[in-house]
């Protein structure tokens, strides 16, 4: 028994189907509880006022925006090395979810920045890196969409994901270098404040857990769809052959 048995599509379908029966309700409960708590039952913060409620969206989505790309990187590596189709399809399934999360982080950040920094958009290193990450997602998705043959698409997008990861990290440091010290403060204090008051800490943790489960659920659902789509394609091809 090893983890690789889940690379078998049949095993994956059975296991993920069983998992999803628990994951879907759990995700729904956690997200609703976390977001309602964050939205309705947290006190205004001294400096930021009620805008502090936005962190319950901003922080989890930003975390997932990055981690979804990491997951895609790992899945791409597994595909390139071990040629498990489920792995390639999981990477494909994760990309739109990661892109959406990145977009949510960007938009909520901009909306929060308007009253706090006095501008919708500042070329802050963090913001800029996220925008670049979003561009990487767009390129990755566009490449998947452009190639017809699924194995070719999986190979090429995996290579792009590897190269893109290296350049995304390079860009992160380049951007830091490019705008060091100008807007560092505002976004960092929020993240590094270890002593976040309990009133914010608990709903934030629930939201983060909820978003992670949301990501897992979405990726599982989308991977199942991709597996079915491939089987459908194979069946149709066989049908045409007679």
């Amino acid at each position: 028994m090893s983890i690789w048995k889940y690379a078998n599509p049949v095993v994956f379908m059975r296991t993920s189907g069983w998992l999803l029966r628990w994951l879907v309700p759990l995700t729904a409960v956690l997200m609703v509880v976390g977001l309602v708590w964050g939205f309705a039952f947290t006190p205004p913060e001294m400096r930021q006022g009620t805008t502090v409620k936005i962190i319950f969206l901003h922080v989890p989505s930003a975390m997932l925006g990055i981690n979804a790309w990491l997951m895609m990187l790992v899945a791409s590596l597994i595909w390139l090395v071990r040629r498990h189709h489920v792995s390639a399809l999981a990477a494909k399934a994760a990309a739109p979810v990661g892109a959406t999360m990145t977009l949510i982080a960007l938009i909520t950040g901009a909306i929060w920045g308007e009253p706090m920094w006095g501008t919708w958009w500042a070329w802050d290193p963090r913001l800029t890196s996220f925008l670049i990450l979003f561009l990487f997602y767009l390129g990755y998705l566009a490449l998947w969409a452009a190639i017809e043959d699924p194995d070719t698409a999986a190979d090429l997008t995996s290579v792009l994901c590897l190269v893109g990861s290296v350049f995304a990290i390079l860009s992160r440091y380049a951007v830091n270098f490019w705008n060091q010290g100008l807007h560092q403060g505002p976004s960092l204090t929020l993240m590094q404040k270890q002593h976040v008051a309990d009133a914010y800490w608990y709903p934030l943790m629930i939201c983060i857990t909820g978003f992670i489960l949301f990501f897992v659920t979405m990726v599982l659902l989308r991977t199942r769809t991709e597996i079915r789509a491939r089987r459908l394609k194979a069946l149709l091809a066989r049908e045409r052959m007679g």
Partner: peptide, 21 residues
């Protein structure tokens, strides 16, 4: 308070995107 529109629009945008997904 005075950030009503800010907070509401952030939640609205995020929910719309999540629901769309």
């Amino acid at each position: 308070g005075k950030y009503e529109i800010t907070v509401l629009s952030a939640y609205a945008v995020a929910l719309v995107l999540i629901v769309a997904l």
